[in-house]
Design a protein around this nucleic acid. Structure first.
Lengths: 358, 358
DNA sequence: CTGAAAGCGCTTACAG
DNA sequence: CTGAAAGCGCTTACAG
C-alpha cells in the first residue's frame, strides 16, 4: 500500500491536505499594510501606550483580518521565557499519574502556561536526561514526581543553577525544597490501625520500594499502626518490593507458603492488592473471610463491580493543581522559604476488611 | 503562614532556592573563549563541514566545560519549526486517554519532538480554542482524539491552512484526512455475536454518544451481531447515552423497570458496564447467572480482583504511537493520499458472560 | 578552512 | 504620539 506518487502534481483528492503552507502573518506584514512601523503594531497589539486609539483600532482590525497570531518562539527568545513547565513522571500508563497530570495541565493552562510531560520509565539515567531535555526546551520549572534518594545531586544542581522545582508525592531527605504530598506515615498508621482493629492478628505488609520516600513512610506507618493495635507483622525485615500486580501475586504466594495462617495483607498500593487477590483466588482463599486485604491510592479499579477494596484516598488532582500553583509562584519570583504542603487523605473502608469474630 | 519577608536580604536557609539565575552559556560565549566566530562554533557543534577537526574538538571541549545547551527558542525561530505536536483530548483523568498519551509521548520523543496536551473537557468551544492555542504555541501538527461531527468546519480550516492533523479513534465522515483507530463496527458485531451465541435472547444495548463515530459504529455493530445471532435488542430506538458509570447505572435501572426479563446488557465501554453492575448488585441480580454483561476497551479496572468483565481489547498505546508516526511523516512532508490505519482488536471472554442452559 | 553578515519575528529602550 | 534601531541566540548562504 506504499504507492506514494509525490511526483504527480495534479493529485486529485477532495482537499489538499499538505499544500505548501502559507507563510504566517507577522508584525511586519501588518505594519506594511498599515503604513506604520512594527514597533507601533507591537505596541498597539499588546495594549502598550504609545499609539493613538485610532491607530490602535485600525491595527487591531488589520491583525484580525489577516489572522495574525504572534510567533511564540520569537516572543520567548526576546523575553527569555517560555511559559512552559515540565512534569516528570515514570509512565502515564501507570494509572497513578494521569490524574496528577490532569490537575497540572488544568492549573498551568489557567495561568497561561503549557506543560511538557517527560516519561522517564524505570531507567536509571532517565531522570537526569529528562530534566536536561526539559531545560533545553526552556522549561521554566519542573514538577518532579518520581524521585529517589539517588536523585539528590540532580536536585542540588538544579538549585545551584537557579531552576525552580517542586517535589510531588515523593521527597528527598537532605534537599531543602518545596514539597506537595500527603502524610504517608500518618495515613499508613491509620490503615494499620484499622486492620488491627478489625481483629486481624498475623499480618503481612507488602510495601513499595524503600528508596521512595512515600512508599517507605507508608510501610513504616502500616507497621506502627498494626503493632500498636496488637497485630504482628510477620515480614518485618522484608517489607519492600515493586508496586506491581505481579509483585503482589508473587510475594503473597511466597508468604502464604511460609505462613499458611496469615490473616491479612496490607499493601503499598491498590495494584499490589489486585495481585494479592489473584493469589487468594487461585488458592481458594475467601476475601475478607479467610484473609483481609487493603490497598492504597483508591484507583478506579479498586471499587469496580464486585471488587470493593479497602484503601486510602489520595487527592491526586489537587496534588497536581497545588504543586503547579506553587511552582508558578516560584517562577514568578516568590523567594519565601521552602514549603511543605501536606494534603488530606481519607480511609475508605470497603469490603475486603471486616470485623473478625475471633 | 504567610510571613513572607522578601526584604530580608540575609535570609538564612540551607540552599538559596531562588537566587538570580546565571545567564546561560551561548554560542557567543564559546566563540569569545575560543577566539573564533559564532558561525564556526555553530558548525563545529552541529557536525557541519567547515571547521578543522582540531578546532572542532577544541570547541566541543569548551562547550562541555561551559555546560552549553542550545536555546530552543532561537533555533526554532531560525528554522521556523517548533518540534512540537499537540494532543487534544477530553480529560486525562478519563482512563481511556492516558495510554494513548503514553504512546504518543514515547513515539514523539523517539523522533525528537515534544507533546503539548490540551484538555478540552466537554465544553462546546473547547476544541476550537484548544486548537488555536496549540497553533499559537507553534505545534506543527495535531492529534485529535475527541472530535464530533460539529468539528468538521474546524478540521477543514486546518486543512485549508495547511496544518497537518490525524484523527485518532474517532473520525468525521465528510472530512478526507488521516485516521488511526479500530474497526468499531466489526468489533461491535463480534461482541454482539458472542453474546447471542451464549444464548442471551433479550438484550439491551447501552451505547455512547451518537455523534462519536466510534460509539455509533460500535453500537450499530452490537445490534447487527445480536440480531444476526437471533437475539432481540429491546431498546433499538434508544441506544445512546453517556460513557459514564452513572449513566450505566441509571439506564440499566430504567430498562430493568420496563423489562424485568432482560437477559444481558451490552455496553459501549467498560465504565458503563461498571454502572450496570452497580444496578445489578443493588437489585440482587447475579452476573452472569441472572444477567450477562459486557464492556468495551479492556481497562485495568475490568479485570481486577473478582471483577472479570467480558470486553474488547483496544490497542491504545499502539494507537498513540502509530498516529504520532503518521503525523510526524506528514509534518516531514509526506503528501501521499489520506490514510486509514485500522488496528486489530481482540475479544476478551471473561466471567460476566456464560453459556446459557436455556 | 574560517569569518562577517543577514535574518528568523518579536520587544523595548531611545530619539524625534 | 510615532518611528528607527538594537538585540534575544541561533543558522546559513556568502566571501575571503
Amino acid at each position: 500500500v506504499d504507492r506514494t506518487r509525490d511526483d504527480q502534481p495534479g493529485d486529485d483528492r477532495g482537499e489538499d491536505l499538505n499544500r505548501p503552507r502559507r507563510r504566517r502573518t507577522t508584525l511586519a506584514d501588518i505594519a506594511a499594510r498599515a503604513g506604520v512601523s512594527v514597533a507601533s503594531v507591537s505596541f498597539a497589539l499588546n495594549g502598550a501606550p504609545g499609539v493613538s486609539n485610532e491607530l490602535r483600532e485600525r491595527i487591531v482590525g488589520l491583525a484580525d483580518e489577516l489572522g495574525f497570531r504572534p510567533n511564540r518562539a520569537a516572543r520567548d527568545l526576546q523575553a527569555g521565557t517560555s511559559s512552559t513547565i515540565g512534569l516528570v513522571l515514570v509512565d502515564l500508563s501507570n494509572p497513578f499519574y494521569p490524574e496528577i497530570a490532569s490537575g497540572v495541565i488544568a492549573a498551568a493552562t489557567a495561568r497561561g502556561h503549557e506543560v511538557l510531560i517527560s516519561q522517564v520509565g524505570t531507567d536509571e539515567r532517565g531522570h537526569r536526561d529528562a530534566v536536561l531535555a526539559q531545560l533545553d526546551r526552556g522549561s521554566e520549572g519542573m514538577l518532579l514526581t518520581s524521585i529517589t534518594a539517588g536523585d539528590a545531586p540532580l536536585l542540588k544542581e538544579l538549585q545551584r543553577r537557579g531552576h525552580p522545582f517542586v517535589q510531588v508525592y515523593r521527597e528527598i531527605d537532605d534537599v531543602q525544597a518545596d514539597f506537595v504530598g500527603i502524610d504517608d506515615f500518618g495515613a499508613g498508621t491509620e490503615m494499620g490501625t484499622h486492620v488491627a482493629a478489625c481483629g486481624y492478628r498475623r499480618v503481612a505488609v507488602l510495601g513499595g520500594a524503600e528508596d521512595s520516600s512515600a512508599s517507605r513512610r507508608r510501610a513504616l506507618g502500616f507497621v506502627a499502626g498494626l503493632e500498636s493495635g496488637g497485630a504482628t507483622v510477620i515480614n518485618r525485615d522484608n517489607l519492600w518490593g515493586e508496586l506491581t500486580r505481579a509483585s503482589g501475586a508473587e510475594r503473597s504466594a511466597a508468604i502464604l507458603d511460609g505462613h499458611p495462617d496469615i490473616e491479612a495483607f496490607v499493601c503499598g498500593n491498590d495494584v499490589i492488592a489486585v495481585g494479592v487477590y489473584d493469589t487468594c483466588r487461585s488458592s481458594g482463599l475467601a476475601v475478607p473471610g479467610d484473609v483481609g486485604l487493603t490497598g492504597f491510592d483508591d484507583m478506579s479499579l479498586s471499587s469496580a463491580g464486585p471488587f470493593q477494596l479497602t484503601t486510602m484516598t489520595v487527592p491526586r488532582d489537587d496534588m497536581g493543581r497545588i504543586s503547579t500553583d506553587l511552582l508558578l509562584d516560584r517562577i514568578a519570583g516568590d523567594t519565601s522559604p521552602p514549603r511543605r504542603v501536606v494534603l488530606a487523605h481519607s480511609l475508605q473502608v470497603r469490603e475486603t476488611t471486616s470485623e473478625r469474630a475471633s
